[in-house]
């Protein structure tokens, strides 16, 4: 579903991604972990067609980026640490707006169902700026799955959430991932990555330094492996 070969991304003289190779099968949930500045967000922005690769080949759902970006965007949902929502619109208005932008039909029904799913139907007419951070992230997930994408990209979605909100978000992430979608999530939290994902890739110094299947490693050994890879 996602195939990346020899990806290089430079900003001026600084190389952030240095020949990165990455492959995700359909329906797989992959967590991408790594230290600050490893290039996780840059990589996700390239997969999301928000940034152009300097070199290399990137394919999402069989379409090449950036050449076939429009076809990729139809199949892609993105949740970042920012909610990508308008604070001066209500939750319902935000979803109506994005539904129109995605060219969806039967908006009332679809938006209502999504609001039910993320547990915000009762507060659908509240302005988003009055929402807590956790509620905004749940609505952000609703926005990302409005058009029923095949691929979901989560860029540190737990940032700024308290324990309860993070746990609620985990349940929602597992729910949307369980519907056969391909998910790539970046995270700083190894425990959370191990809980949610089937595979954990460690990004360090612009390349995938290690790739581990969850059932092939004891979660207790993960921090040790992480340290050895990122400090190598």
């Amino acid at each position: 579903m996602i195939d990346v070969r020899g990806l290089v991304k430079t900003f001026g003289l600084k190389s952030v991604l240095r020949g990165l190779e990455f492959h995700v099968d359909r329906g797989e949930f992959v967590a991408l972990v790594g230290p600050n500045g490893a290039g996780k967000t840059t990589f996700l922005r390239i997969l999301a067609s928000l940034a152009r690769p300097s070199m290399g080949e990137v394919r999402v759902a069989g379409y090449r980026l950036p050449a076939q970006a429009a076809a990729v965007r139809v199949r892609l949902g993105v949740v970042s640490h920012q909610p990508l929502l308008y604070g001066d619109l209500t939750a319902e208005e935000n979803l109506f707006f994005y539904s129109r932008m995605y060219g969806l039909t039967d908006l009332e029904h679809r938006v209502g169902a999504i609001l039910e799913m993320v547990g915000l139907h009762a507060r659908r007419r509240d302005l988003v700026r009055q929402y807590s951070r956790g509620m905004q992230q749940r609505l952000a997930i609703g926005r990302a799955i409005l058009h029923d994408p095949d691929v979901l990209l989560f860029d540190e979605p737990h940032t700024g959430l308290d324990q309860e909100a993070a746990a609620m978000l985990d349940t929602l992430l597992q729910d949307v991932a369980a519907r056969g979608r391909t998910v790539v999530m970046t995270s700083h939290n190894l425990d959370r990555a191990a809980d949610l994902a089937e595979r954990i890739d460690i990004l360090s110094k612009g390349v995938i330094a290690a790739s581990i299947k969850r059932d092939e490693i004891d979660p207790l050994d993960l921090p040790k492996l992480y340290r050895s890879v990122t400090h190598a």
């Binding site: 999301a48 067609s49 928000l50 429009a70 076809a71 965007r73 139809v74 892609l76 993105v78 970042s80 920012q82 909610p83 990508l84 929502l85 308008y86 604070g87 994005y98 932008m101 995605y102 060219g103 926005r143």
Partner: peptide, 18 residues
């Protein structure tokens, strides 16, 4: 600035329209 501050510009750029 309204588009940029909450990342909404990215939200718009992710939409599959010209």
């Amino acid at each position: 600035a309204v588009e940029k501050d909450r990342g909404c510009l990215d939200g718009l750029l992710l939409v599959p329209v010209d």
